[in-house]
Design a protein around this nucleic acid. Structure first.
Length: 430
RNA sequence: GCGGAUUUACCCAAGUGGUGAAGGGGCUCCCCUGCUAAGGGAGUAGGUCUCGAAAGGGGCGCGAGAGUUCAAAUCUCUCAAUCCGCGCCA
C-alpha cells in the first residue's frame, strides 16, 4: 500500500509505476483516488464542523439541565436535531469514500525498485547468478516419486484414500530426511543469528485479511468450520501478523526471525494440483526467514536473506541460481523479489525452491507496523521474507542431485548428524 | 466449554448520562533550600485524521466494534483479553 500523500503530490509517478508493471487497467484508479480523497476531506471537514457545533450545544444543554431550565434545554435540543440529517448523510459519505479509497489503494501496486528489470511476466525474469556446476549425469535420473518409491519412501495411494489428491505419506529414510532437512535448516539459521520461532498454525480472519488480498485468501486459505480461524498458508502469515499495529522501539531492530510451520494451501487457480508427486501439494512444511528493519537497512538484508538460502542449498551439494523477478511478475506489495531455483538433472533445468522478497514499507503501512525513533518520531518499518527451505521441493532437488549411478542416494556431510550418521539412504519396511 | 469478576495514561486508580476524563506515584522543566534530605510551582490521555503558510483550531478516542441519545468511560448488544472457580484434555 502506498502513502496516499504520494498520489496527491505526484500521481504521475504512481502511474508510471503501474505502466512498468503492465497493469494499465489500473491507471484510472489513481485519478479516482485523487478525486475521492478530495471529496472525502471536504466531507470530513464539513462533518467535523457540525460535530463541533453539536458538541458545544450538547454542553449547553447540560448546563441548562443542571440549572433546571428544562424548556430552554428542549429548545436547544430541537435545534441540534436539525443538524442530525446532514451529519448522518455526511458521515455515510465519509465512510463510503474511505472504503472506496481503501479498496483502490489496496490494489495500486507498491513502487518497484529502480533497477528491477522491466518485463511482462515470468518469461522475462532475469537470471542473476549461478552457484555450483549444473551436472547432467550419464545415467538417466528417474522421476522423484520413483526414486522415493524405490526406497519405499512414499505412499500416495494411501494418502489419496485418507485425504485425497495433493497429500502424501512419507516413510522411513525419506520421512527422516524430511525432518533432518528442517532441523538442519533451523540450526543453520540460528547459527546465522536468527531467532527461532514456532508460531500458531491457525490465525483469525482479521489477520488473514491484513496479510493478503481477498483473491489470495479464496485461492489459498482453508477455513476451520464454526470458528473464526484459518490454517496458515505460510508462517509469514502468523509471523508478520504478530506485528500488526505495533510500534517497535528502534533499539529492538532489526528483528531477524526464522520460523517453522506446516503450510496449508488450497492451490485453487492457475496451476492446481495436476502433477503426480510432491511439487505442489495441499500440506507441506517450511522453514522461513522474516526480517523487520529500518528502511535504510532493507537493501542489505535483502542480499543477506537470499544469500542464506543459496548457502544452505550449496552445503547440500545442490546447484542453484537466482532469478530476478521482472516488473510484471512482481506481486503488488513487493519492491523487489528473486526466486532461488535448484538444478534438476532430470529436467535439465532449474526450478523454484524459494522466493526472497523486499516489501519496503508496503506491508508495514498496510498493517500499521511502525518504528519509534530515538527522537520520538514514528515511521513505517520495512519487511522482508524468504524461504530457507520447503522440504518437499528440497526432496526433489536433493534426490535428483545426490542420486548415484548405482541407484543409491548419498547423504551429504552436513545432513549426516541429523540422519544418525548415515552416508546413504536405505530402503525401509512398509 | 460453563459461571463470576475485570479492562481508563508509563504505573496505581476515581468516575453509572451533562461544562476541561479526578487523585496519587513516576517522569520532564523551573523555584527555594543546601552537601545522600525536604518543600513549592508548571507540564505530562497515548494515538490518529483533518483545516491552516504558520501560530493555532477542530473531529475521533476510556480493550475492539456496533447501537440508544441532543449528549456515552457511564446504558444495550457482539467480540477479544486478563484473573478466579468448575469441567475437559495431550
Amino acid at each position: 500500500m502506498l502513502d496516499i500523500k504520494l498520489l496527491r503530490t505526484d500521481p504521475e509517478k504512481v502511474k508510471e509505476n503501474i505502466r512498468k508493471k503492465f497493469q494499465d487497467d489500473k491507471l484510472p484508479l489513481v485519478d479516482e483516488v485523487v478525486q475521492m480523497d478530495k471529496d472525502f476531506r471536504a466531507a470530513k471537514t464539513r462533518a467535523d464542523e457540525l460535530r463541533a457545533k453539536r458538541n458545544t450545544m450538547s454542553k449547553q444543554i447540560g448546563g441548562l439541565m443542571a440549572k433546571g431550565q428544562k424548556e430552554e434545554a428542549e429548545k436547544v435540543k430541537d435545534e441540534v436535531k436539525q443538524y442530525g440529517a446532514e451529519l448522518e448523510e455526511l458521515a455515510a459519505k465519509e465512510a463510503e469514500l474511505e472504503g472506496e479509497i481503501k479498496k483502490r489503494m489496496m490494489v495500486i501496486p507498491q513502487l518497484i525498485g529502480d533497477d528491477v528489470p522491466i518485463g511482462k511476466d515470468d518469461s522475462e525474469n532475469v537470471e542473476r547468478e549461478r552457484f555450483g556446476e549444473p551436472v547432467v549425469p550419464d545415467f538417466e535420473v528417474p522421476y522423484h516419486v520413483d526414486i522415493m518409491e524405490a526406497l519405499n519412501g512414499i505412499d500416495l495411494d494411501a494418502a489419496r484414500k485418507t485425504s485425497g489428491n495433493g497429500f502424501y505419506y512419507l516413510r522411513g529414510d525419506i520421512a527422516r530426511l524430511h525432518s533432518a532437512i528442517l532441523s538442519y535448516a533451523r540450526d543453520f539459521m540460528i547459527d546465522r543469528g536468527f531467532t527461532y520461532y514456532v508460531p500458531p498454525f491457525m490465525i483469525r480472519s482479521d489477520v488473514v485479511t491484513g496479510v493478503m488480498s481477498f483473491a489470495e485468501m479464496e485461492n489459498m486459505m482453508y477455513k476451520i468450520e464454526g470458528e473464526d480461524l484459518y490454517l496458515i498458508g505460510t508462517s509469514e502469515h502468523s509471523m508478520i501478523g504478530k506485528f500488526i499495529d505495533e510500534i517497535i522501539p528502534e533499539g529492538e531492530l532489526p528483528k531477524a526471525l526464522t520460523s517453522y510451520s506446516p503450510c496449508f494451501r488450497k492451490e485453487v487457480g492457475a496451476h492446481g494440483i495436476e502433477e503426480r508427486g510432491v511439487y505442489r501439494i495441499h500440506q507441506f512444511e517450511k522453514q522461513e526467514m522474516i526480517v523487520v528493519c529500518k528502511p535504510e537497512d532493507s537493501d542489505e538484508w535483502y542480499k543477506k536473506l537470499w544469500n542464506n538460502t543459496v548457502d544452505f542449498f550449496r552445503t547440500l551439494d545442490i546447484p542453484v541460481r537466482t532469478l530476478e523477478c521482472c516488473s510484471g511478475d512482481l506481486a503488488d506489495l513487493k519492491v523487489r523479489s528473486l526466486d532461488v531455483e535448484a538444478w534438476s538433472p532430470r529436467q535439465k533445468k532449474y526450478f523454484e525452491v524459494g522466493s526472497c522478497s523486499n516489501l519496503g514499507d508496503a506491508q508495514a503501512r498496510r498493517l500499521g507496523i511502525r518504528i519509534k525513533g530515538a527522537d520520538g518520531q514514528k515511521y513505517f518499518a520495512h519487511t522482508l521474507n524468504n524461504t530457507v527451505v520447503a522440504p518437499p521441493r528440497m526432496l526433489i532437488a536433493f534426490l535428483e542431485n545426490n542420486l548415484q549411478a548405482d541407484g543409491t542416494v548419498r547423504v551429504p556431510e552436513a545432513l549426516r548428524p541429523y540422519m544418525g550418521g548415515k552416508e546413504k539412504l536405505e530402503k525401509c519396511k512398509v
